[in-house]
């Protein structure tokens, strides 16, 4: 009985060690316009750098919904929320803001294609009565993290992002 348990542990230990190495090297892409990288795994963590749509990052470690990524040419190492990342590959087309996606691991991802700025422009041309300026203004509001932090503190609230899964 005992040796069998030892064998089981050996296999388990080996597998855990190996899978650790494999997942540590996982490459992912930033799937949002602006991907903030933070010093600690929480939104109140200091922003150490900002990544762009399509940037490739290496995941070194996971903590709940946060991923610690290795340094890139544009950014230092730090934490980014997993909802900002995808395992699809997104590549930027030369001379165009639109992104082009290649197939990776049998998966077809389509970014910068489909419903994009070009389609929106065509939609606007067909619906001239629609006014996008208020939407542009709405999206232009950018409230700094420090103001959210101060707002939470003043109201006796807490940053819930550390618990977010």
């Amino acid at each position: 009985m005992k040796p069998r348990i030892i064998s089981l542990f050996l296999v388990l230990a080996f597998f855990l060690a190996f899978s650790g190495i494999v997942s540590a090297g996982t490459m992912m892409s930033v799937q949002v316009k602006k991907g903030d990288v933070r010093a600690t795994p929480a939104f109140l963590g200091k922003i150490v750098s900002t990544l762009e749509y399509g940037d490739r990052v290496e995941v070194l470690e996971r903590k709940d919904a946060w991923m610690r990524i290795g340094p890139t040419t544009k950014s230092s190492s730090g934490w980014i929320h997993s909802s900002a990342l995808t395992d699809k590959r997104i590549t930027l087309q030369a001379g165009s803001k639109d992104a082009q996606v290649a197939a990776s691991g049998g998966e077809l991802a389509l970014a910068g294609k489909g419903f994009n700025a070009e389609v929106e422009a065509e939609f606007k041309a067909r619906n001239r009565d629609l006014d996008f300026s208020a939407i542009d203004r709405m999206q232009a509001t950018d409230i700094p993290q420090e103001r959210i932090a101060a707002f939470l503190k003043e109201g006796g609230l807490t940053d819930g992002s550390g618990d977010a899964r």
């Binding site: 950018d142 409230i143 819930g160």
Partner: peptide
Amino acid sequence: ENYINLIGLALAQASDRPETFGGYHFM
């Protein structure tokens, strides 16, 4: 509007999907 944006952003950051392509905005 600024007030509801602060409340909304604090909540969105605590959601299971805090990051969207263009972020959360409230009107």
